[in-house]
Amino acid sequence: MDAYANIITMSIVIETHDLSREYKTYQKPEGVMNSLRGIFKREYNSKIALDKTTLTIESGKIIGLVGANGAGKTTLLKILSGLVTPTSGDARVLGFKPWERNYEFLRQISILLGQKNQLWWDISPVDSYALLARIYDLDVTAARKKVNDLAEMLQCAHVLNTQLRRLSLGERMKMEIIGALLHDPKILFLDEPTIGLDIVAQENIRNFLANYVKEKEPTVILTSHYMDDIATLADRLLLISKGNIVYQGTVDEFVLNSNSELAQDEKVDFEEVIRRFLETESRIR
């Protein structure tokens, strides 16, 4: 392998080949009689959530993963972070098969699920961070300093000692972000980090993430239904529809090339371009 090829190989942090995931779900027709029948016989439907996905992602990039509900973006995120095992295909993240959950791999990634708490509900964030420092084998003093620095940046130092369950949604999300960044992950999976937040809180978190990424240069896979998140943060766009990647490229290229007529129309914004593109793809498939 020559030096150039080596550099190229080194910079790829995520690689998938024909990655697929199928789910089976129990179908329950309406009524008590069908519930009784279901004790003895059940019918299952198969759904392909991710269909033979092949992609490569370079280090230090922010990837905006966009698709409609049920398109497969969270499934892809869950496979790449090791939460879910694929039905077929292969993937390497930082050289590891994610679903084997090697501790060395898990120490280098972080996943933030906007709709799920990752920190501990019954204790204060500082206690949670102390626990995370132990889990990730961090220097406790350095971890404490990092928490304080991040809390200053996010303007939430005043709630660090308050039990998590007593915080507002916006404050909780800031606490979750600090928890996700505490061990300096090389890859950060962000699944709708601004969901449910008001516009000001969304913007604060967006600005914080933009600054953080500029400084630390982790690879970020970001899913969001708020196109402002994607437009502000993402270097590259991955559009997914019905389990298939339908576009890979930069945000600018997408706006210019995928639908040049729409892009030139000043009344149509980025969100509208993506929406129309995905609608067209959905009809084709």
Partner: peptide, 12 residues
């Protein structure tokens, strides 16, 4: 409930 998600992605 799926809360286990936050545990199995940590090195423990």
């Amino acid at each position: 409930s799926g809360t286990i998600n936050s545990l199995i992605v940590r090195p423990m």
